[in-house]
Amino acid sequence: MIERNKTSLSLNLLLPGVLCLLLFGASLLSIGILSLRPERLAREGIGLNQYLRFFSDAHYLTYFWRSFKVSCYGTLLTLFLGYPVAYLMARSGGRVRLMLTLVLVVQFFTSYIIRAYALMLVLGNNGLINRMLMKIGLIDRPLPLMHNETGVAIGLIMVSLPFMIFPIYSVLKGIDRRLEEAAESLGAGEWQVFWNVTLPLSLPGMAAGIILVLLFQLTAFIVPGLLGGGYYDMVANFIYDQALGVLNIPFAAAVAMVMLAITLILVIGLNKLFQRSLKDVSA
């Protein structure tokens, strides 16, 4: 005879987790408080000065516009480039699949700094691409592939590819192949099967990938920092610069609050949107 309460756990076990949660909540709250400080070094006082300053100067909005623009087309390109890789992984057999997975997981676990640095060596004026193009005589001056929007976009796409590939792969490999075979036996060509069967079935993976990648690219710091080299700062770089460069923490906190609000609205909105459209597909 065992008593029920012998196996049931004490709720106290959740206490350390709740403490972490409180710490996290308190840190977000303290940004909110500091963002209301009226002046750069003020230790007290409450006001909306920082927010007014931010919204009244269009110059500050350019950082948000850059992040938004680059992450929108960056996410679409990441989807376009990532999907085929996920498809290959899902459709290839043992050896090939293992090799592809190994390459991607190594990428995934290699730090962003190293991957961004590696791309600097490829895209720079003395980098692999410019050297090769000059050697074969296609160009006589290095192409500006770094320290501009192009470099940042390429970097963001390359670094976030695993976030797109893994969720799509995970969905694709679970799709019942007989559905595709049925469509084929009814006379559908390869592209038709893909557009009408495979692609709609893989929408949940694409939705997850899009949210992950958009979130990553919108809030990226390292890639615009290294591949933009200060010439193409995005929101995260601007916030850091305001906080620890010019030591205007209240203003940095206000911009951070705006960034937090925009990210949360985007993520929650996209989640809702995808959930509704996925319901429509399955209905």
Binding site: L215, L218, V235, I239, M259, L260, T263, L264, V267
Partner: peptide, 11 residues
């Protein structure tokens, strides 16, 4: 889902 920069500023 909270941007890393925001978490950093928060701490």
């Amino acid at each position: 889902v909270v941007p890393q920069v925001v978490i950093g500023i928060g701490f």
